[in-house]
Computed example of a mutant assay.
Amino acid sequence: MARSQDSFSKKEKEKKRAQQRQEKQEKKDERKANAKKGKSLEDMMAYIDEYGNISSTPPDPNKRIEIKQEDIQIGVPKQAELTEEELIRNGVVSFFNETKGFGFIRDLQSQESIFVHINQMSERIVEGDKVTFEVVAGPKGYSAVNVKKVK
């Protein structure tokens, strides 16, 4: 007599697959029975309150704030323009490298460090010299121009 081609493990795997199919079908039937179709538009709406939180109730119209389009700033704000008296400043050379041709001037008013290039000087300067200079806004920040040594 011939033996059966199905082994014990094959039969177990087949039973397991059938059980999984049965469970899947039961879940599908349950979802169909509990499905809520036709929700109203009001039930699906979500609102954002004044603090940015999502809520199911509409916001209070009395708390509404009007915002002008010009007041909205996207990105980094531009630097403010300087007046004529703010342009000419006094300072002390805090660092200068003659071989590379640049340095920094410590502004006496704001204690800010301002870049200076050798092409913007009328005479040779060294560290510790007192100078007058004008400030120009460059692409990487302020830089000193028309640098003159104070005698």
Rank of each mutant, 00 (worst) to 15 (best):
residue 3 R to I: 07
residue 6 D to M: 08
residue 7 S to N: 14
residue 7 S to W: 07
residue 7 S to E: 15
residue 9 S to C: 12
residue 10 K to H: 04
residue 12 E to D: 06
residue 14 E to D: 10
residue 15 K to N: 09
residue 19 Q to P: 00
residue 20 Q to F: 07
residue 21 R to Q: 10
residue 22 Q to V: 04
residue 24 K to C: 02
residue 27 K to Y: 11
residue 31 R to M: 08
residue 31 R to H: 09
residue 33 A to Y: 14
residue 35 A to T: 06
residue 37 K to V: 06
residue 49 D to F: 14
residue 54 I to D: 06
residue 54 I to N: 06
residue 58 P to A: 12
residue 60 D to C: 08
residue 61 P to K: 15
residue 62 N to S: 14
residue 65 I to P: 01
residue 65 I to V: 14
residue 67 I to Y: 13
residue 68 K to I: 02
residue 71 D to I: 04
residue 71 D to H: 13
residue 71 D to F: 07
residue 74 I to S: 13
residue 74 I to L: 14
residue 75 G to I: 05
residue 80 A to F: 04
residue 85 E to C: 05
residue 90 N to Q: 11
residue 90 N to H: 13
residue 92 V to S: 13
residue 93 V to W: 00
residue 95 F to W: 04
residue 100 K to Q: 12
residue 108 L to Y: 01
residue 108 L to R: 01
residue 109 Q to C: 10
residue 109 Q to N: 14
residue 113 S to C: 03
residue 114 I to N: 00
residue 114 I to D: 00
residue 114 I to P: 00
residue 116 V to T: 11
residue 120 Q to S: 11
residue 122 S to I: 04
residue 122 S to L: 05
residue 124 R to I: 02
residue 124 R to F: 07
residue 124 R to V: 04
residue 125 I to T: 05
residue 127 E to H: 13
residue 127 E to A: 08
residue 131 V to Q: 01
residue 134 E to F: 03
residue 136 V to Q: 13
residue 137 A to L: 13
residue 143 S to W: 01
residue 145 V to G: 09
residue 149 K to W: 05
residue 151 K to L: 07
residue 151 K to Y: 05
